[in-house]
């Protein structure tokens, strides 16, 4: 028989074996307990990475056996380990971060939009603009220039949008937040926001880094399934301002 075909049959029979719950559960358990070794362990790891049910079963047993770590005596590693970790992932000094977060948390979400606008203006006057932003904020107003929403984007990768006035929406439409680059170009969709109260959206680290290039935020009403090229009605807009440390 063709050796390739023999190999295929072998793989199939192996897979069938691993699809038998009785067998794969035993193997998952042995893997998690650490009693599966050598080539069998490697083979199981490969199949586990390809089949969700194997991964999930193994993970469940790993979480059960993982409790065994609690019985171990505590042993202190050398201080160098933490220093290496810090430099490997390039953590800035923890103290700096602490100041940044506590500084921004002072801006309570319960502030009214107008108060926020005043605060922003003050900060922008007194703080030089060429420092790295610790957060961004925007007050979004409607066509009548009344302030309707406060948006804050913080270094913990959160975009919070707080509506200070409810927006009435037609059935089948949602509100979406968009970021417009300073130099023009394709806007970036940030997600759906609620027409009332506060919405928190998560952003990626890359999106956070990109915030320095964003000039304006907009909230538009559009259908849930709309795409970046779909027609949308802008309801609110406002300029995004960087907040820097003193």
């Amino acid at each position: 028989m063709d050796p390739k075909r023999v190999g295929d049959i072998k793989t199939m029979s192996e897979l069938n074996r691993y699809q038998n719950p009785e067998i794969f559960e035993k193997l998952a358990m042995a893997y998690a307990a650490g009693t599966l070794h050598g080539r069998a362990r490697l083979r199981f790891e490969k199949l586990k990475s390809e089949h969700f049910y194997l991964e999930a079963t193994t993970s469940a047993y790993e979480s059960k056996f993982g409790s065994l770590v609690e019985l171990l005596p505590s042993e202190r590693p050398s201080d160098q380990v933490w220093k290496n970790i810090e430099s490997s992932i390039q953590l800035p000094k923890v103290e700096e971060k602490k100041e940044k977060t506590s500084w921004f948390s002072w801006l309570s979400p319960t502030y009214a939009a107008s108060a926020m606008a005043v605060l922003l203006a003050v900060f922008l006057v007194i703080l030089p603009g060429n420092k790295e932003a610790v957060a961004y904020a925007a007050v979004l107003g409607d066509a009548q220039n009344s302030d309707v929403a406060i948006t804050r984007i913080t270094s913990d990768l959160t975009v919070s949008v707080e509506m200070v006035k409810k927006i009435e929406l037609e059935d089948g439409t949602v509100l979406k937040l968009w970021c417009h680059p300073k130099g023009g170009g394709k806007p970036m969709e940030m997600g759906v926001v609620s027409s009332t109260g506060k919405t928190n959206l998560k952003i990626s680290k890359e999106e956070w880094e990109n915030m320095k290039t964003i000039g304006k935020l907009e909230i538009s009403a559009e259908s849930h399934s709309s795409t970046p090229t779909s027609k949308r009605t802008t309801l609110l807009k406002g300029y995004l301002n960087p907040i820097t440390e003193e």
């Binding site: 650490g34 993970s59 979480s63 059960k64 993982g66 770590v69 609690e70």
Partner: peptide, 13 residues
């Protein structure tokens, strides 16, 4: 995924 310490123990192991 279970308790956080057990998850970290699995990562370490």
């Amino acid at each position: 995924k279970g308790k956080a310490l057990t998850w970290m123990a699995t990562v370490t192991r």
